[in-house]
Amino acid sequence: MTPELPSAQRPWLSVVMPVFNGADTLAESIASVALQAEGIELVLVDQASDDASVAIAKSFADRIDIRIVSNPESSGWMENTNLAMSMARAPFATMLHQDDYWHEDRAAVLKAMLETYSEAALWVHGADYVDDRSHRIGTFAPPFGARRRLVPSAEAFETLIVQDTIALPAVVFRTSDYRMLAGLDETLWMTADWDLWLKLIGKGPLAWTHEKLVAFRLHRASLTLKGSRKLEDYRDQLDRALHRHLDTLAEAERARLEPLARSSNAINFWLASRYHAAGASISELLRIVLSIGPRRWGEFLRKTQLLQRVVPRLRLRKKK
């Protein structure tokens, strides 16, 4: 089976970008795509930015096939992404936020991956964590190994149900699959991408390469760090996405995976509480860890990539 190929006039990849007051980083983000833009379109949806975001985007019109859409009454990045995806012309699509950017040769690697693993339902690679000055402070990737391979759906699901370890800009998927699955759930402002990856895995295997092909920016103004201040909302976001996919499992599979997944959510909540100085106790953390059981600690650390996720955030916090 070969991948769906575009016509000469049709792009092979749509990059969808929701934007709101992104002037500080938007030029770096768009430029990283423009440098490898052959056969690529950028669909940017602006949410009534009152800074220079739109002007910056327009300045790239002679370097990349770009469409800029205004959606001033939007409910957030999920709605803007879904709107951009409704206008995507390419058979494949990827998301890019205003503060993240591509590394050199990402497009070339993706083309090779699409051709080699045409039966996949999503194509995934690693990412670098960078700070607000674009300095690398860590890496972000699921634990699928150090070689390119096709990861079976069951293996991908049982890893990602425990913890979303995929960076949002590090995924490519079929435009048709996204639309068939109704895109991002606009009620999940924190976990909509995790929910989408798990739905896509239900359609087929995951193509994987360990190469770090994008930069995922951590900074104090990011949605993840700002949103997690609302701790009960944050807990609800984690739990709703988890329950939705646990409920699809057979009883034996659920019994095996649920303790790890619930513990991961609990630790994420504990870490958010500590980051925002909300008084989470160390005894609560110990209770969570002990509930996993020592025989599964190694599996838990591997699937959650806990140290790889926490250390860059600690480095960022020290800069406050």
Rank of each mutant, 00 (worst) to 15 (best):
R10Y: 00
R10Q: 15
P11Y: 05
P11K: 07
L13I: 10
L13C: 08
S14V: 07
V15S: 04
V15K: 03
P18S: 08
V19Q: 05
N21L: 07
G22Q: 06
A23S: 15
D24V: 06
D24C: 04
T25A: 12
L26S: 11
L26D: 10
A27V: 09
A27R: 15
E28D: 15
S29N: 10
S29E: 07
I30C: 04
I30V: 14
S32V: 09
S32G: 10
V33Y: 01
V33P: 01
Q36H: 11
Q36S: 10
E38Q: 14
E38Y: 05
I40F: 04
I40N: 04
E41N: 05
V45M: 07
D46N: 12
D46P: 01
Q47F: 01
A48I: 06
A48Q: 13
A48S: 13
A48V: 05
S49Q: 04
D50V: 13
A52H: 06
A52C: 05
A52N: 11
V54C: 08
I56T: 12
S59Q: 02
S59H: 02
D62P: 00
D62C: 00
D65C: 02
D65E: 08
R67G: 02
I68G: 00
S70G: 02
N71H: 09
P72D: 02
E73Y: 01
E73L: 05
S74I: 07
S74R: 03
S74P: 05
S75D: 08
S75I: 07
G76S: 03
G76P: 03
W77S: 09
W77M: 06
N82D: 09
N82W: 03
L83V: 11
M85I: 14
M85E: 11
M85P: 09
M85F: 11
M87A: 11
M87Q: 15
M87N: 08
R89W: 03
P91C: 10
F92H: 14
F92I: 08
A93D: 06
T94S: 14
M95A: 13
L96G: 09
L96S: 10
H97G: 14
Q98L: 15
D100N: 15
D100K: 12
W102E: 11
W102C: 13
H103K: 14
E104M: 10
D105R: 14
A108V: 09
L110W: 09
E115N: 11
E115V: 03
T116M: 07
Y117T: 06
S118W: 05
S118I: 04
E119D: 10
A121V: 05
G126M: 03
A127S: 12
D128C: 07
V130F: 02
V130I: 12
V130E: 02
D131I: 01
D132Y: 00
D132E: 09
R133P: 00
H135V: 07
I137M: 06
G138K: 04
G138V: 06
A141M: 12
P142S: 14
F144C: 11
G145H: 13
A146S: 15
R147T: 14
R148G: 15
R149G: 09
R149K: 15
L150H: 12
L150Q: 12
L150T: 13
V151M: 12
V151K: 12
V151E: 11
V151W: 10
P152D: 13
S153Q: 15
A154V: 14
E155T: 14
E155I: 13
